[in-house]
């Protein structure tokens, strides 16, 4: 009786034994690497309706973040400024600039400029800017060196694991309360111990339980 399986099929179990772990490892790597918010979100750099440069305004001119994002210390939401804030200066400076055409139109008509949101948390995650500022977390800790960005982009994944990294051990990301918006404040160069800062009336105690952020 002739053999049902030809001789070469003897190699199939060996091939499966060798290939299956490789394919499995490849799949695990692919999901861990390409499904991670470090891949899907970091580097998101949308084109904005007006080519506003944070590098020019916050970096070169040194305007404080809070001049425009003025609600950040008092509310959960760090407001995108109304066109009127732009016009505080731009009714005087660069009044003919073509790049500012949409700003002037918006100011005249009252129709807001539709800026594209860069940093967006999932809707089931509660986040409060004012609480983080009160704790002395710098803008740059989450948003990066915005003062060096001509076009703002995401530099951190803003994922749950990344949030928890800091909630479990906040100290490396804490700074003196009056240096929160200072982009040049370098945690590596400063010897800052939040526990010995007399300006802090209470120590930070970030929530680690689920309902801290999923309320």
């Amino acid at each position: 009786m002739p053999a049902i399986f030809p001789r070469w099929t003897n190699n199939i179990p060996i091939a499966i034994g060798v290939l299956a772990p490789l394919v499995g490892a490849g799949l695990v790597f692919a999901v861990a690497y390409w499904f991670s918010p470090r891949y899907t979100d970091v580097g998101y750099r949308p084109e904005q309706p007006v080519p506003y440069s944070h590098k020019l305004h916050a970096g070169d001119m040194g305007i404080d973040c809070r001049y425009c994002h003025n609600t950040v210390e008092r509310s959960a939401h760090a407001a995108i400024p109304p066109t009127a804030t732009c016009m505080n200066c731009h009714e005087q400076v660069k009044t003919e600039s073509l790049r500012l055409r949409k700003v002037r139109e918006s100011y005249q008509t009252g129709e807001p400029i539709e800026w594209v949101r860069v940093h967006q948390l999932p809707d089931y995650a509660y986040f409060n800017h004012s609480a983080h500022l009160a704790a002395g977390v710098g803008c740059a800790s989450c948003h990066g060196r915005v003062d060096k960005m001509v076009v703002v982009e995401m530099v951190q994944p803003l994922s749950m694991g990344w949030c928890l990294d800091c909630h479990r051990n906040p100290e490396p990301n804490l700074r003196p309360l009056d240096q929160v918006t200072n982009m040049n404040w370098d945690p590596a160069a400063e010897d800052y111990d939040p526990k010995r800062d007399p300006a802090r009336t209470r120590q930070v105690n970030p929530p680690l339980h689920c309902s801290g952020c999923h309320r």
Binding site: Y33, F35, S36, P37, R38, Y39, T40, D41, V42, G43, Y44, R45, P46, E47, P122, D123, Y124, E153, V155
Partner: peptide
């Protein structure tokens, strides 16, 4: 990781995002 892109982030698992 971290390549600049102006495409909105793709979330494969939406989960009521």
């Amino acid at each position: 990781w971290g390549n600049p892109s102006d495409e909105p982030p793709v979330h494969l698992q939406q989960n009521m995002d």
